[in-house]
Computed example of a mutant assay.
Amino acid sequence: MDTLIQEFRVAYTSLKGDQLAETLRPDLESNAGKLQAIWNRGDARSAKADLQFLFYQDHSRPRLSKDETNGWYEIYLAYWKAVGEILAAEGLRTDAKSNWTSVYEAWKELTSLIIRGYTNHDFENWTIPCLYLAGRYLRLYAIRADEERRRSGDDAVTSFQDDFDPETEEHKQLEDCARHLNRIFTLCLSDRAPLEESRKWGIYYAINLLFKTYFKLNAASLSKNVLKALSASKGDMPSIDKFPASQQVTFKYYEGVLAFLEENYVESIKKGDLRAFDKALQEGEDEFIKRRIYLTLERGRDIALRNLLRKVFIAGGFEEAKDGAVPVRRTRVPVAEFTAAMKLKSGDDIDADEVECLLANMIYKNLMKGYIAHERGIVVLSKNGAFPGTGV
């Protein structure tokens, strides 16, 4: 405990947020000796006595307000308890056993206390790295708890209940974690202090944790709510280039993935303009290769081609309705029409055989549904969902 207390004093006195967060790091790989020393100080009574001396009695303690003092005291006491659960879960305690669900619950209490520090105890924005660290390990412990529960088969106990949902139980802790990460996001987003004193400087780290969590839960669509809230607050936010490069890269990666999932592409893909797509890819080739995304972007040409073929299909209009029947789209499209469109939009002199090959690949990749009637020179498209993902 003495080492922990000294580290807190140094970090708080020098107003070093990263250094302060390190005092709460629970990583056994780099801090095993430190965690053992913290826990082995004694029982809860001894831990409380040490912390009370630091925060309330020691004349050399940092000068904190009464609210701040109460907040940090509760946090470090919760940290001591969490350390005990971590050591027990790793089999490094002889007096007790634990599991990762207990570790998660203990760390969740610590995370809640840190969040409360900003709402109830006047914590300043330079301490935001503590929020980063709390959220990061909350997510990691949630994942370990869910994995441990699946391996041990604990869900079987509740599987006979009427309201049992296997998919929900599979990520029980991680879904709970998402709610607390959202609290961190809201805490940062809603701060109205001047930017130099604002918690908004923690926003992209919180968003990135949420993105990772939502994707792990196969609930990427929830990320749209985060982006909408961020967009609504853009006027009060520092520009993204003011944040650490690691946060910028992670955010832009997930933003790009979400754009593809929403089919929100670059203009040439939307229009099915193959010539513009090829030109943009060629002009940015060196940069794309440097960033190792060239092959990923190149595959977007299939989507551009799909959109072009879809335009031809839609332009074909409807078949003549008989006996008052509801008109349906023409599903037999001559290969010659697709050939003409591809010549127009690619600028290449492409023949019918090559077009048929491209059409066959699109059908194979499930970017269009139907078959090619080679002898008749037509493509017979599905009446329902001829172009999956577009609603047509």
Rank of each mutant, 00 (worst) to 15 (best):
A178T: 03
P129H: 04
M342C: 06
S231T: 12
F243C: 08
I184E: 03
D278H: 02
A229W: 03
G385S: 09
R25N: 15
T168W: 13
L344P: 00
K311A: 13
E320D: 14
E337D: 15
Y56A: 04
L258C: 08
V103H: 08
K322C: 01
Y76Q: 02
N125Q: 13
T3A: 15
L222K: 15
Y137E: 06
I38N: 03
I203Y: 02
T296C: 03
N307C: 05
P244S: 04
N225M: 05
V333P: 07
L274F: 00
V355N: 04
Y12H: 14
R332Q: 15
E7Q: 15
G385C: 07
E196W: 11
E147S: 06
P166W: 05
G71W: 07
S221D: 12
T168Q: 12
D162R: 12
E22N: 13
F185D: 04
D58M: 07
T101V: 04
H121D: 14
A340L: 10
V257K: 12
T111Q: 02
L64A: 10
N384T: 11
S198Y: 08
I5K: 06
T186V: 04
E105A: 13
N264W: 03
S382R: 10
S346K: 02
A178W: 00
N125P: 06
E170N: 12
E175M: 13
L20P: 07
D353V: 14
R330H: 10
